[in-house]
C-alpha cells in the first residue's frame, strides 16, 4: 500500500482487466471548482453591495454632500451672509427657490453652506470615536483581566451619562453659553464632547468582537509561534474583528451630524456666525406657522445627509453579516 492515493489492493486484482489510469489529481478534475474562487468577507460583501439600490442611493447622497461641504460654490452663487431685511421670512421667488430667513438671507444658500460644518463635525467625531472606542475595545478584549475590568468600568462611567444631558453639561462647562466665542474652539469642544460620551458603546462592540476572534485557531497558532502581543493584535485580530466597528462608525457619522444639529438647536453647540442646519432650525422654530420653509429646508438637508450615512452603514451591515444572509 505504498500509493496512498489509489485503492492499491484493487489494482492488484483489477490490473489485468483495466489498465489503471494515472490518478486523476485536482488539475485534471472537471471544472467543478472553477467559478467558486474563495471569496473573502469583504469581496463577498462587495458582491452583495453592488446589487443593492440602497447602497447606490446612499453613495449618491454622500457624494453630493461631500461636494457641498468642499465646494459649496458649485451649488449656489448666492452669498449666504448677504441679507435684505425687507425680505425677511419671505417665501420662494425666482432666484431664491427656498425663500428667505429671519434676516432676509437666502435659505438655500445657507443650507448649502451649512453642510460644511455638519459633515466636518460628524466626520471627525466618528473617526475619533472609532479610534478611541476601537483602541479601548481591542485592548480590553485582548488582555482581559484587570485591564478589561478597569477599562470597562471607565466606559460605564461615561455610558452612565445620558447623552444629551451629558453633552449639555459638558458643553456648558467648556463653552461660556453667554458669549459667542471662537468658532474653532467651539467646533473642537463639540467634537470632543461627542467622542467622550460615545466611545464606550464602540469599545463594547469592539471588545466582544475581539474576544470572539481571540478564540480562533489562527490567533492561537500565531501565539504558539511566538508572535508578540502588538503583532497579534494588529496583524491577526484587528483585520478580523474590525468589521462591526466599521459599520457602527459609518452609521455614527450620520447620527453625529444629527447630534451636532441637535446641540446647536439647543443653543449649547455651534452658534452664529457659524452657518449650521441646527441653528437655522432653532431660529425658525417659532415661525413654523408663518414661514415653514425656514424650518423645512434645512431640516430636509439635514435628514438627507444623515440618511446617506445611515443607509450606507445599514447596507454594509447587511452585506457583511453572515447571520442575515
Amino acid at each position: 500500500m505504498s500509493d496512498p492515493g489509489a485503492f492499491t489492493n484493487e489494482r492488484e486484482t483489477e490490473e489485468q482487466q483495466h489498465a489503471p489510469e494515472p490518478f486523476l489529481g485536482e488539475e485534471e478534475a472537471p471544472p467543478s471548482g472553477k467559478q467558486e474562487k474563495a471569496r473573502g468577507l469583504w469581496s463577498d460583501a462587495w458582491y452583495d453591495l453592488r446589487r443593492k439600490p440602497l447602497f447606490w442611493v446612499s453613495i449618491t447622497l454622500i457624494v453630493i454632500f461631500m461636494l457641498m461641504a468642499l465646494f459649496p460654490s458649485l451649488f449656489t452663487s448666492t452669498d449666504p451672509y448677504a441679507f435684505d431685511l425687507s425680505k425677511r421670512t419671505d417665501g420662494p421667488e425666482s432666484g431664491h427657490i427656498f425663500g428667505y430667513d429671519l434676516q432676509g438671507r437666502d435659505v438655500y444658500a445657507r443650507s448649502v453652506y451649512g453642510a460644511q460644518v455638519s459633515i466636518l463635525v460628524g466626520l471627525v467625531a466618528a473617526l475619533g470615536v472609532g479610534l478611541v472606542g476601537g483602541a479601548a475595545g481591542i485592548i480590553a478584549g485582548y488582555y482581559g483581566g484587570w485591564i478589561d475590568a478597569v477599562l470597562s468600568r471607565i466606559g460605564d462611567v461615561f455610558f452612565g451619562l445620558p447623552f444629551v444631558l451629558g453633552a449639555i453639561v459638558l458643553l456648558s462647562t467648556f463653552i461660556d453659553p453667554t458669549k459667542s466665542g471662537d468658532p474653532t474652539k467651539i467646533k473642537v469642544v463639540v467634537i470632543l464632547a461627542i467622542v467622550v460620551l460615545s466611545w464606550p458603546q464602540f469599545a463594547r462592540v469592539m471588545r466582544s468582537s475581539v474576544i470572539a476572534t481571540k478564540q480562533s485557531d489562527y490567533v492561537q497558532a500565531a501565539r504558539a509561534l511566538g508572535a508578540g502581543h502588538t503583532r497579534i493584535m494588529v496583524r491577526h485580530i484587528l483585520p478580523n474583528a474590525i468589521s462591526p466597528l466599521i459599520v457602527m462608525t459609518t452609521i455614527a457619522l450620520g447620527v453625529f451630524v444629527g447630534v451636532e444639529a441637535t446641540l446647536s438647536f439647543l443653543g449649547v453647540g455651534l452658534r452664529p456666525p457659524i452657518i449650521s442646519w441646527g441653528i437655522a432650525i432653532s431660529d425658525a422654530q417659532t415661525y413654523l406657522d408663518i414661514a415653514p420653509h425656514m424650518l423645512l429646508v434645512p431640516a430636509a438637508f439635514l435628514s438627507a445627509a444623515v440618511l446617506g450615512f445611515v443607509m450606507l452603514g445599514e447596507a454594509v451591515r447587511e452585506a457583511i453579516d453572515p447571520k442575515l444572509k
Binding site: 406657522d289 415653514p292 424650518l295 431640516a299 435628514s303 444623515v306 445611515v310
Partner: peptide
Amino acid sequence: TLFLISLPVFVVGFLLQYLFGV
C-alpha cells in the same frame, strides 16, 4: 425605519407638532 433613524428628534417633533397641532 431608515428615514426614522435619520430624522433627528427635534425635526420629527416639529413636524408632528406642526401637522397634528397647528
